[in-house]
Structure formats: C-alpha cells, structure tokens
Design a binder for these strands. Sequence first.
DNA 1: CGAGGGTGGTTGCGTTTGCAACCAATATGG
DNA 2: CCATATTGGTTGCAAACGCAACCACCCTCG
Lengths: 166, 166
Amino acid sequence: MTASGSTAREEAFEPQLVLERFLPYRLNVLASLTSNALAQIYAERFGLSIPAWRVVATLGQYDVRTARDIAAHGVMHKSTVSRAVSALEQRGLIQRRPNDEDRREAWLALTEEGRRIYESIVPEALGFESRVISVLTPQEQILFGNLVDRLTASARSLAPEGEVEA
Amino acid sequence: MTASGSTAREEAFEPQLVLERFLPYRLNVLASLTSNALAQIYAERFGLSIPAWRVVATLGQYDVRTARDIAAHGVMHKSTVSRAVSALEQRGLIQRRPNDEDRREAWLALTEEGRRIYESIVPEALGFESRVISVLTPQEQILFGNLVDRLTASARSLAPEGEVEA
DNA sequence: CGAGGGTGGTTGCGTTTGCAACCAATATGG
DNA sequence: CCATATTGGTTGCAAACGCAACCACCCTCG
C-alpha cells in the first residue's frame, strides 16, 4: 500500500524485528556456541553432561554446598540438579553428607576422584575461554564482563520471580 | 598441607575456576534469563514454543525462506525446525509452497494470521529488550553489541564445524 | 542415461527436560 | 503442642530433544 519498494503480493512491510540485532537472540547464539563447544570437552573426555559439569564446577569452587544452593547458583531446575547429583554420586565423583541441623538437606562435596576430574577439566575450560575472548583487548574483556553483569542484574530484576532454569 | 587458612580435611586449595567470572557460565545465565522471560510472553499468550517463535520471527523478517535457511540462521537442529514448521502449518500460521526449481525443499511464509501474531509479539519483545538494556547507556549498548558480535565470530571459528544447535 | 554421492526434509527412537505431585522434615501460629 | 504452611529433595509422566536412519530428489560423471 505504501510507496516503498518490493512487489510483494499485497503488503509491503519492513521487518519489524531484525533478529541479528535482537539481543536475546544474539545472546542465545553466543551462549549455545560456547556451551556446546565446551560441552564437547567434558562430555567426550569425562562423560559429564552439562548439568553434571555445573554441579562439579560449583562444588569445585565452593567445596561444600547443598543441592538447593547449586540450583539457585547455576540457574538450573531443582530436578535437574537432583538427577545430576545422583548420577555423580553413583559414579563416586561426589559425596553426600546429611546435615544434622536440617535433615531435609544434605551437604555435597567432590570426592578425591571428583576433584581430580575437576582439576583436569578446569585448565581446558579456561583455555577455551581465553581462546574465545582473545579477540577482545584486555580492556574490552573487562568492559564486556562489566556490561554482562549489569545486564544480568537487569534481566534478573525483570524475571517474574523464581522463573528461571536452564 | 600448606600454611594457608581453612581447616580443610587435608587439602587447602584455591578454587581453580570461579564460575562468576567464567564467560560461558555467565553468558548462559544471562541468555537463559532473557530467553525464559521472553518465552513467557509468546508461550502463555500465543502458545508458541521457543523453536516455533524462532521460525515465526525468521519468516517475519525474511518473508520467504526454506526450513534449511531457518535452521542455519537460528542455530537450530533441522529436526527441531521440521517439527516446529509442521505444528505451525497445522495451526495455520505458516504456509508451505513447493519450490518447483528444487522439489526437495519448500518455501515457507507466514499466513495472514501468522503475521498478525508476529506483529502482536514483536512490540512486546522489543519492549522487553529495551527494558533489559536500559541499564546501559546508548554508547554502551552499541559497544556491547559490537563485542557480542566479535565474540560470536570467535566462538564460531572455534566450534568443530557444524556442531551447533539450540 | 544410469549409478553413486550429496542434500532438504521427515520420522522413529532413546534420552533428557520441566512440571507437578509427592515425601520427609522444619517452621509457624493458634 | 497440634494443625498448617513451607522448604529441600525425589520421582512419574508427558513433552521436547538430538541423533541417525531414511526418503525423495538433485547433481555429477563415466
């Protein structure tokens, strides 16, 4: 109807939303590229699923946590964490110790073997990360981290409460 | 064994990898926060799954594409796209027209109703996006987009070939 | 033109996922 | 204290997922 170009059948519209400039879309592409590439490392070499790796990574960093902590921290659904934890426990990579102060929950920690695996993965993970971000200058890297954090805070404040999983 | 703090059982280690500073982790958190929040809009209000929305968004922007194009563009597996397309076709939101030049593939386009839904979602999606990024100054927004693009290119070049889906 | 390889798209299958219902234990409030 | 709500964690189930096998078709090359 308007006088713009294109001999479209009837409507001549501008795209209303250009995906390549749409933030959620771009973030998703970038995040899945990095996640999938990383996943190959710990899946093929150590048989860890993504949730399992997240549990291991969290315990590697924090030593002792509950499943609930891990879920909240890693933006995962509690059932996802529960299953990852059982699998890891059965493989002897983490250990569960009841909390006598509150017998609903349990403390989780890496076993020695779990930590050994963690320590094998970490350098690879860090290496991968540094290869990815090497296209940015050091200042840009810092800046980017800063912007990501602020956006995350913003997104979190807009999310309709505990609505968040992986 | 070393003289550092903590009365840990035996080892006294530094965390080797701090998740809060680990890029793939942070990107995942941010991406799933935004994706999930967005998904609520088009899932609850229009009954669209994430892949379905991506198909609609792509066709909204490009008017006519093949399933293959959409998959490549949206970083989705071709079976995911195939199923989303069938569902959308059955709901009358998109239309399939055989390509006589190559009868393996088919041209896909939004129907009028499909476009109506697209046009209802877009303002909401853009509104959500702008609320999220409003914590950045305009220059920061541009800069962030630039950095994301460069990181994406970098990650893509490191990914072991067509290894990428949602 | 006919055989062999490659490509767009679909589908069966086993696995993973998220949701919701549930269990056990703790907190709260009459 | 007992009833009720809440919370950490598990599990059944249905839906969604990726993979690989597959079908139809195209393209090449002998």
